[in-house]
Design a protein around this nucleic acid. Sequence first.
DNA 1: CGGGGAGGTGAATCCTCCT
DNA 2: AAGGAGGATTCACCTCCCC
Lengths: 360, 360
Amino acid sequence: MKLPIDQIVVGDCVASMKALPDACVDLVFADPPYNLQLGGELHRPDNSRVDGVDAEWDQIGNHDDYDLFSCAWMEEASRILKPDGAIWVIGSYHNIFRLGTFLQDMGFWIRNDIIWRKSNPMPNFKGTRFTNAHETLIWATKTKDAKPTFNYAAMKALNDGVQMRSDWTFPICSGAERLKLEDGKKAHPTQKPEALLHRVLLATTNPGDIVLDPFFGTGTTGAAARRLGRHFIGLEQDMNYAEIARGRIAAIEPGSADAIDVTKSKRAEVRIAFGSLVESGLVKAGDKLYDAKGRARATVRADGSIKAGDKTGSIHQIGALVQNAPSCNGWTFWHFRSGDGLAPIDELRAKARKALADLG
Amino acid sequence: MKLPIDQIVVGDCVASMKALPDACVDLVFADPPYNLQLGGELHRPDNSRVDGVDAEWDQIGNHDDYDLFSCAWMEEASRILKPDGAIWVIGSYHNIFRLGTFLQDMGFWIRNDIIWRKSNPMPNFKGTRFTNAHETLIWATKTKDAKPTFNYAAMKALNDGVQMRSDWTFPICSGAERLKLEDGKKAHPTQKPEALLHRVLLATTNPGDIVLDPFFGTGTTGAAARRLGRHFIGLEQDMNYAEIARGRIAAIEPGSADAIDVTKSKRAEVRIAFGSLVESGLVKAGDKLYDAKGRARATVRADGSIKAGDKTGSIHQIGALVQNAPSCNGWTFWHFRSGDGLAPIDELRAKARKALADLG
DNA sequence: CGGGGAGGTGAATCCTCCT
DNA sequence: AAGGAGGATTCACCTCCCC
């Protein structure tokens, strides 16, 4: 049988995989429905409505249905994978634990779990949880003894000469990269950034390898593959998505240098919260802070806010308040007792930064 | 039955939990064994060696013992948790997917998964994988409808005034914090940093709450709890670990009420009815209200309702109406004439609150 | 052409109390 | 238990328009 190389097969992904022979692909990258189970409408504080994922393909139902569906496509993915091939799956807390468990139960051997840290996630508008600022990927091989492709040196080079870690920081897909319909609406609710796929393919495939994506959507996997000189097989149920993906991929110059401008990941800024000094013990809850002349006095609280008189707030807010100034840099304004004198808390921040830099 | 508050119970954690009554703790923090499949030995939870494990080890997908053990302690943890209590579990890719799946299957509702990013992880020496630079925590409640403690404002304060995200950066436990034996060797192989527990407890418990840790080890949970004015119950099967934990915790000065006080959210404030402002004369019947730009206009009535056009209702209802919005916070939407400009009526509410506080 | 401000938006399990 | 009412709640981008 001739493989549908660099093509998109429209239809049910399990059925499409069944038509492929055993051990024919080098990598599977799967971004399956997350089965989010969202409630009603959600509004931002300014009353605008959040355009959530209400696509029919994400409404799978209870855990049992989701589990059956997951095991079905994963069994086929396993079959068509070469013995030393590898699989990637991506998900959120809604589904990733189940996917990881099934992979393990099916005999897959997890090499790493990878965290995609979003530099610009959607906030939690109601103040009820932590900002959901990441997604999780799993990289696994069919067996414990498999020898998958891993371009260690390329990853190290990509990371300024130090070993690539398991947490990757990328912005979500937006701006010019985000595919839009003619009416200006987003073409797909969950388009992944090409930079993410770039790193996945660069790390775990070689040029000429075949990558299968059973949930192809608008073709980010295909786009990254073409840019990097890999081959893809895309499976997609929705012919509209498939059509958009075809146009997108056709417009890409294979292996051209413009891949580079999507590769650059924004490095996390080293911002130190005053609260983290409390957590790390450099400052203790209950410690006193003073201005440079030892006058204005405030007390540190366990959450990194400080208290002066009956007012509480950040080091900057309270600093401004006690000076009756419009603003204040709390790091240089506030001092702590150090030996026989006072020293600005900025010295503690410098210490924390140094600890991070030395170790991390 | 009298709970072993601020004590360490030596023995099997499942047996110890069985001795506790239903719904008696506010939080469970669990750092269970990670089931590291390093090819050596497998021990049952009671530390007896599993016979024939070497042979079974190569049979892929045999997680039965770990699964049985996990479900056993999680069932008990669920039973002793109060209805609105919460559970945290921490793990790595070796075990966290299974723990998450079991939690979901038992009806727990995941609120967040949290990534602990290690600023100084151990590198991967062989260059065969990405540096394993994180661990995963899951925060869940017994049911979907539970109302767990979440100190949103304190977390925001701790993060310099922006919403706390789901990825937390801390160094691994080392230096002076790392407990050592007399021979200089580390006392426990997987001692967690106290900063991690500080954030967990500050976020999801209140002072005086009871936190149970079924895998107490050398007592990081107890140490953080004591510092923050929370109570702990520690379960630990190794009496040597328990002894080290006792000494460690006894040396800690409990946090003062002032120091453990944190920024509270507005929801915790006393409720003031708009009508009470009319009663107290802060607003008079017949007064005009405006939006921030001085446009939408309403008239205050004697019962605290307001009238815009021919519609009457609460400040919130009419605010939503004139904006054609699904909801509205009338306190911040409506303004009154103050001097030569406009000021939100929330200022009047603050005045009324202050008067209440001064009196009582 | 630059800067500033307004407006839009993203895989989201997103309120709480009282009757 | 369900419904109604009070009222709390956002970060890091992006584009577009105006001056």
